[in-house]
Design a protein around this nucleic acid. Structure first.
Ligand code: NAD
Ligand code: NAD
Lengths: 235, 235
DNA sequence: AGAAGTTTGTGAACGAGAGAACAAAATCGT
DNA sequence: ACGATTTTGTTCTCTCGTTCACAAACTTCT
């Protein structure tokens, strides 16, 4: 997994963006991208790290350090050229090319995802919607028809699909995941509350509503306790 | 914000779970809880840290350390009592009480969320569905009727709502957020692609599909580049 | 009872990330 | 031309999180 990661620069004289941006930074780049797009829409040509940091909701030092991993795209005393930086980040993330995506499990959530316009807006193209329920196959959502899950392998092959979205019940998730992986998908976004086991070369990210709510509940409870302790102390 | 955090134990002799579990641990507790529930359903009475770690998809040492923040609930040479540990985690997170939740923005996504059964299963009770679109008000989803967003304050007050879910377009998110906060909500789960500004005492967590896809795309691109470099090197 | 085998809880080493602080590099005003 | 001002890029320090490794504590077998 880490075979080629810690190698110091491949070719001589190529220190720029030395293959390997910290994970925490990668997770923030899309946020910066969004902030830049919003500034660009407002006809702002140049922005300082402080401006950008405010728009992105982060510390300005952190933002500058993040951007420094990509290269030196700013100008001291001036700031960053909004459109130029936007393009550089997009290129670094890989948004200058299109990505084909399949959604498996077209229930409540899958249908919402299929209808989501923000999907296509950033170079993510829906190649197919797949479901195992015969009653759902053939239904039209947006501009796509729901296909049978049996077509998965053909769809992935024909559309060079790299990213699979799982929106099935938890029980089916691992099975669907295995099918995706064996068809050649190497990135998976999982909405089902299940732990997925995948080979090393496959990336999995999960979105879990229930976990988010529980984290909020924990802090909410703590706030209440703190208040209680405060009142008790005041007596 | 950190006023009472670094104080050493409140009462004498009360070192157990000394108010303040690391954030990374808090985020994993719900995963452990899910693993325990699944084991309990399979009539497993006792599980070792290795068993649990496998079920939760984490390192066993990490799991043990996480659990040690709650107290010493395991037995050396044996493992953990599944149901006992399950209760302890649930209590620590605050799931032994019910939490009232409102969803604002009943479009594609909000409707899917409202239909989501996994919501209620863990002590999260939907108090209301709110939308600003008059055409949507009155529509029935699940066992709730969509209310006008003008009712927000009354709903929050009458149901002691602590958690608000935002599923409106990005443009409306900050405005809705402000309304929620001023009505008394102190935890917010945001699905809109917008940076929310809130007072210190309010917690915000975001779920952002677009960001997740972009992170996957970055790694996907890197994998492809690595492969390319490998082939070039082999020539 | 005592030896052998398990498994927890935690100290210590290591690594990653956040933020403060500042020198270097650019612009602007005179 | 040159000092004052702005703002980046980076170094340094500190905090937080992960993982290893092992003594302590428990069970089981003889
Ligand atoms: N609805 C939500 O708001 C929400 C929120 C968070 C998480 N989730 C999770 O997302 C998942 C989907 O939720 P939902 O509400 O859409 O459920 P759903 O029951 O409405 O839809 C599930 C769909 O998956 C299909 N399916 C089942 N097995 C399949 C298989 N092996 N291959 C292909 N398709 C299969 C079903 O036919 C159905 O259409 C669940 O795991 C749920 O826990 C949903
Ligand atoms: N649909 C998805 O799968 C998906 C996925 C990821 C993120 N999102 C995000 O979630 C949000 C909702 O997406 P959607 O597809 O459901 O959009 P949508 O347009 O279908 O629904 C938005 C709803 O919000 C309501 N609304 C607008 N302004 C409001 C206000 N001020 N107060 C109360 N209600 C208001 C609208 O009437 C509408 O019903 C968007 O920000 C979107 O970017 C959606």
């Amino acid at each position: 997994m880490t075979s080629a990661r810690s190698r110091k620069s491949g070719r001589a004289g190529d220190d720029r963006a030395e293959r390997g941006i910290p994970e925490a930074t990668v997770a923030r780049l899309p946020v910066y991208l969004r902030a830049l797009t919003s500034l660009s829409d407002g006809d702002v040509a140049t922005a300082s790290s402080a401006d950008l940091a405010t728009a992105a909701g982060v510390n300005s030092a952190k933002l500058r350090k993040d951007l420094s991993y990509l290269g030196t795209y700013g100008t001291r005393g001036v700031g960053y050229d909004v459109n130029y930086l936007r393009y550089q980040i997009a290129r670094e993330i890989g948004l200058t090319q299109d990505w084909s995506v399949v959604i498996v499990g077209i229930g409540n959530l899958g249908r919402a995802l299929a209808n989501y316009s923000g999907f296509a807006s950033r170079g993510f193209r829906l190649a197919a919607l797949l479901d195992s329920d015969g009653a759902r196959v053939g239904e039209v959502i947006g501009d796509l028809k729901v296909s049978a899950v049996e077509d998965l392998e053909a769809v992935v092959r024909d559309n060079a699909v790299a990213i699979g979205v799982i929106a099935t019940p938890a029980e089916a998730a691992q099975d669907v995941c295995d099918q995706l992986v064996s068809a050649g998908v190497s990135s998976i976004l999982n909405f089902a509350p299940a732990v997925l086991v995948v080979p090393d070369h496959v990336d999995v990210r999960k979105v879990d509503l229930s976990i988010e709510l529980q984290i909020l509940a924990y802090h909410e409870q703590r706030k209440a306790q703190e208040l209680g302790a405060l009142e008790a102390g005041a007596v």
